[in-house]
């Protein structure tokens, strides 16, 4: 499965109570195009989506916050996984889409493949974790458990490279923030 197919599958699992933080590059673009708007579409700040999601989650315990990040982004802000695991907000979900590439910038290889994610995630002592190859047959059940198990949950999916040609996000970041902030009026 490709990353945009996983993101598009999330449509069936999220509702009004869901806040999503998407990481820069293709992931933000895909979240903008496939999922309910507005969400937090990061355009830059590589390495910071988990931190943003953590701040949102602890400040809004009644909402569910899902961070969608790639492996390159994850590696740049790796400490944030540890911070999130330490504070364990019950409403934070982290979805890692791992193609072992900086795909947006042309498919340069990352170093993510050296990590044994099952062992690493197990060591964090969090409420739910899975590390598996994304496939249509298992995806929906796993997304459901990942999103509905109470606690800090991390789902690491190995995905195939590939993207849909999608238009750039038409909103300037100022408008992204304004539209998202309106959800808290």
């Amino acid at each position: 499965m490709k990353g945009y197919e996983v993101i598009s599958s999330l449509q069936d699992h999220i509702g009004e109570n869901d806040l999503i933080v998407s990481s820069n590059g293709n992931i933000s673009r895909e979240v903008y195009h496939y999922l309910a708007k507005p969400q937090v579409y990061l355009r830059g700040s590589m390495g910071l989506p988990i931190g943003v999601g953590l701040g949102l989650a602890v400040m809004n315990p009644e909402k569910r916050v899902t961070v969608i990040t790639g492996d390159g982004n994850l590696l740049m802000g790796f400490g944030s996984v540890i911070t999130a695991a330490y504070y364990k907000p019950h409403n934070l979900k982290i979805l890692i889409l791992d193609n072992s590439q900086y795909f947006t910038t042309g498919g340069q290889q990352t170093v993510s493949s050296v990590i044994n994610f099952s062992k690493f995630l197990e060591s964090l002592n969090i409420d739910y974790f899975q590390s598996l190859k994304a496939s249509q047959s298992i995806l929906n059940d796993n997304l459901e458990n990942f999103l509905t198990t109470k606690g800090l949950n991390i789902l690491h999916l190995i995905i195939e490279e590939g993207k849909k040609e999608l238009a750039n996000i038409p909103w300037h970041p100022i408008r992204i923030a304004e539209n998202f902030l309106q959800r808290f009026d």
Binding site: G51, V52, L54, V58, M59, S80, F180, L181
Partner: peptide, 26 residues
């Protein structure tokens, strides 16, 4: 007040951003 210790300064800025994006003051 919620206090979160960050591993890096930019992570602290990111955590603060999450608060600011939901009309909270960080």
């Amino acid at each position: 007040i919620k206090h979160l210790s960050a591993t890096r300064e930019d992570e602290a800025i990111a955590i603060a951003t999450g608060a600011a994006l939901s009309k909270k003051q960080p």
